[in-house]
């Protein structure tokens, strides 16, 4: 079966060691993680991670259930590009001399909607946010000159849903907690 790029959105408690517990679920099934990004989300205390990986839907559905099985994971969701708005950021370092000597570079930066975020006598750092395709396109163009360094972040995503996917679940859990206390 053909592999697709899946995005897994994991909501968890902020527990030490959870990252390795989750990544090993991929490793056990020989799935290479493309990128992983984590930060606190709009719900205080809840961390959201975005993991991307190439695999099949059948396998990824099982992976997501196994992630959810971790005690400190609140929920995990399997998403495709249709469900989400996502972004990546890339940094490109070129020599400042090159920028001065090559007049084309200015228009390349301009047409790609990139921006310069740091300049010293020796080097200049250019930043571009966008989808992989877009940051890669700028990379290809700059490569024709000379790129000293290049880095691209993992994907960050928000879903097209109204609130965090996990909000409703957390509300339900509060009710469960109340019920538990009474009984």
């Amino acid at each position: 079966m053909d592999k697709e790029l899946f995005t897994v959105s994991v909501f968890s408690e902020n527990t030490v060691g959870l990252m390795s517990q989750v990544t090993i679920i991929f490793t056990r099934r020989c799935i290479n993680i493309e990128s992983i990004c984590a930060s606190e989300c709009s719900i205080p205390g809840v961390h959201k991670w975005t993991i991307t990986a190439w695999s099949t839907r059948e396998v990824m559905e099982k992976v997501v259930k196994q992630i959810e099985k971790c005690v400190d994971v609140i929920r995990a969701f399997l998403l495709t590009d249709d469900d989400i708005v996502y972004q990546e950021v890339a940094l490109y370092k070129v020599s400042t001399a090159l920028l001065i000597d090559e007049p084309h570079l200015e228009s390349i930066i301009r047409t790609h909607g990139a921006r310069i975020i740091d300049v010293t006598r020796e080097f200049t750092v250019i930043e571009k946010t966008g989808h992989y395709r877009e940051t890669q396109a700028l990379f290809e163009e700059l490569k024709r000159y000379d790129i000293r360094q290049f880095v691209r972040s993992g994907r960050v995503t928000v879903t097209k849903s109204n609130r965090e996917y996990v909000s409703e679940y957390i509300e339900e859990q509060k009710i469960r907690a109340e019920r538990q206390k009474k009984s």
Binding site: S12, E13, V71, D72, V73, I74, Q173, R176, A177, K181
Partner: peptide, 8 residues
């Protein structure tokens, strides 16, 4: 303990 938010 009879309740953990992330564990149902």
């Amino acid at each position: 303990c009879d309740y953990i938010r992330s564990y149902n």
